[in-house]
Design a protein around this nucleic acid. Structure first.
Lengths: 195, 195
DNA sequence: GATTACCTTACGACCGTTCGGAAGGTGGCT
DNA sequence: AGCCACCTTCCGAACGGTCGTAAGGTAATC
């Protein structure tokens, strides 16, 4: 369906070039139609953009939710480190994430409000999912570390690594994620042993 | 001088709207000249952009370097937490930082290479400055934590908080920076006491 | 007299958007 | 079966507007 192809192609273009940088004629070209035909499916460039954004938001939320649910049996430590690596790897292959991040970071001024609501919805979801996860394993936490503290510190670290992902130097990301993770784990866990 | 005014105004415009979103006529207007007169000082929009970027890079590097030097007498813990708060506060008032971040994160495709070199220069400088700082205080670190590990974890946390800054919800930033900091400090320091 | 800073005028390219119509498919009616 | 009305999808042509850029002229400064 052309409608879906358009959204998919728009996603890639917006992710790479931003709202202003992306061009309807290029998008149409890529899909194999003329740019005027876009208006059969979307009433404007803005319409295409925010529809794509809402899809992307739902998709991102689903991914995280699904991931957490699927790891029910694993230990906290494994769940977290697996999430870290998988989420970071996902960035490479998944344009949805790239688009969502770019749009959330730097929305076009006229859509700022709508987009902020969407990305906040996502962040809130993230926070509550991870807070719940740490609550279930609160016996593993240091005495002074609450589940919320652990969750927010984890997510901040995650954001920091995402930034490194955007910079796009794999070796540096590798190093940073390894080192950050070890500091984070030492910071929250009440394990006495090493490793 | 018009030349400097142009760069200063361009900085703001590029920071708020990105390269493609910013318009020469608006920039000229703001300075109080006609847009064609820009070409007296810069040979193209690209020229204006990358000159602004190089200025911004130098400015950012200077700030961090200067900051670290100025804190010679303070304790490690104070230097770090002071840097954290000051750097985050700086974002609000300082367009240089906003511009530099936006440009580093999402450079226009045709200038990707030049900009990546610039931002890498900055990141490398940051890493070496902070690694040196932790080396001078390596007696405060946990046995298994190297100065480099501490530095990279700190900078990753900083990046994560910068992301929160971009999202622009002060209360969330407040919470996150407090919690992340406490986890980070517990993760690297060999202090036995609390707080 | 040369140089500098700014102006006016104008250009072509591309932008998003609109309109009218061609083509094809679908379903109902006789 | 044949006809008709309708709807969807697409395209050609064209719109107004903005973009970055060029050339040439005019004052002021050294």
């Amino acid at each position: 369906m052309t409608y879906d192809q358009l959204k998919q192609t728009a996603l890639i273009q917006f992710a790479q070039l931003g709202f202003e940088g992306a061009s309807l004629s290029v998008i149409a070209n890529e899909v194999g139609i003329k740019k005027q035909s876009i208006y059969t499916h979307f009433k404007s460039k803005d319409d295409l953009y925010i529809q794509t954004f809402h899809d992307a938001t739902d998709y991102e939320i689903d991914f995280v939710k699904q991931f957490i649910e699927d790891q029910g049996s694993l230990k906290l430590r494994e769940v977290l480190s697996k999430f870290l690596t998988e989420y970071l790897e996902r960035f490479e292959k998944n344009n949805n994430m790239k688009f969502f991040m770019r749009t959330s970071f730097y929305p076009p001024v006229k859509h700022e409000e709508v987009i902020k609501m969407g990305s906040n919805k996502f962040v809130d979801r993230l926070e509550s999912l991870f807070t719940a996860l740490f609550e279930q394993n609160s016996d593993l936490l240091k005495a002074n570390i609450t589940p919320e503290t652990a969750a927010l510190a984890f997510l901040t670290m995650l954001d920091g690594l995402l930034v490194e992902l955007i910079y796009g130097i794999p070796e540096r990301l590798q190093k940073r994620s390894k080192q950050s993770w070890s500091v984070f784990w030492r910071g929250i866990s009440n394990e006495s042993g090493e490793l």
